[in-house]
């Protein structure tokens, strides 16, 4: 069994700064991390590896420094790391990203065996689109299971997989045939810590590095900025609201304060009080 996990190296957005004058992103000194959602996907893959003796390949598209994230994934216990990197990929939107990644996945299939399962995270914390996973599935014609909260059963002989998927208003239990692309929901598991042996293997493991030509991309207009139908025309900081909160000023006990606050709230939102009275009336008849 072969599993591929797509991970992305992202700036730790908690530490992103906006240039006060030009409103551009200042990445200086901002550490990069593995997109946190992708770790749930990786852990799920490693659990399947333990169960079925699978091989786990991690794949990322990004700048050469993204190799750090791949190496870290190896420390957790992945077996192989592939970095897709080329200046032609710069400025890719989700359509161009899923194209490039799907080409890399084709080469992975040819060189190392076709993956039965491709995992992605639910979404990234920088792009935040949740589109790349579905995009890859479509391009590779894989069945797609998004927002998976639990893998219930994987039957390699029958070639089926059964999962629980977070849907609107409930959990869907879905079954489909392998091969499949799964986007994993957050908080579904807890990332393990690799052993010292894993860490040593990871530190030594080469990162397979491919560029656009290596993965058989002939038409470079499908890549990067030119291959991206969406165009970011404007980036700006949210406008600050000028009016500030009216501070309820009440002295003394918590009760006095609470009383003053309740009055201020209902003065500001009389309909809320009205509706609460209606509800109460219903409750108590």
């Amino acid at each position: 069994m072969h599993i591929v996990v797509c991970i992305k190296q992202v700036p730790d957005s908690a530490q992103i700064r906006v240039h006060p004058v030009t409103n551009t992103i200042m990445r200086q000194g901002v550490p990069t991390i593995i997109n946190p959602y992708d770790l749930f996907a990786l852990e799920e893959a490693l659990r399947l590896k333990e169960r079925f003796g699978a091989t786990v390949t991690v794949l990322t598209m990004g700048p050469p420094t993204a190799a750090d994230s791949l190496r870290k994934a190896l420390t957790f216990g992945a077996d192989r790391a592939v970095l897709l990197t080329d200046r032609y990929f710069a400025g890719s939107d989700t359509l161009a990203t899923s194209f490039a990644l799907s080409m890399a996945l084709r080469k992975i299939a040819a060189d190392f065996g076709a993956p039965e399962i491709i995992f992605t995270g639910k979404q990234t914390i920088d792009g935040d689109t949740a589109q790349v996973g579905p995009g890859i599935a479509k391009r590779l014609d894989y069945n797609q299971l998004t927002y998976v909260s639990r893998i219930v059963e994987t039957d390699l002989d029958a070639g089926t997989i059964r999962v629980e998927r977070r849907a609107e208003g409930g959990i869907q239990v879905l079954q489909t045939r392998l091969p499949v692309l799964v986007t994993m929901l957050e908080a579904t598991n807890e990332m393990r810590r690799g052993s010292i042996e894993n860490a040593l293997i990871a530190a030594r493991a080469p990162v397979v590095t491919w560029n656009a030509t290596d993965v058989g991309i002939e038409d470079l207009t499908k890549c990067g900025l030119r291959g991206s139908p969406t165009i970011v025309k404007k980036v700006f900081a949210p406008t600050a609201r000028t009016e500030k909160a009216v501070i309820v000023d009440a002295d003394g006990s918590a009760d006095a304060k609470a009383q003053a606050l309740v009055e201020a709230i209902f003065a500001r939102a009389p309909t809320v009080e009205h509706e609460l009275n209606e509800q109460a009336a219903h409750h108590y008849v």
Partner: peptide
Amino acid sequence: RTDRQGSPI
């Protein structure tokens, strides 16, 4: 010895 599981190096 390290804080990871496994033998000393």
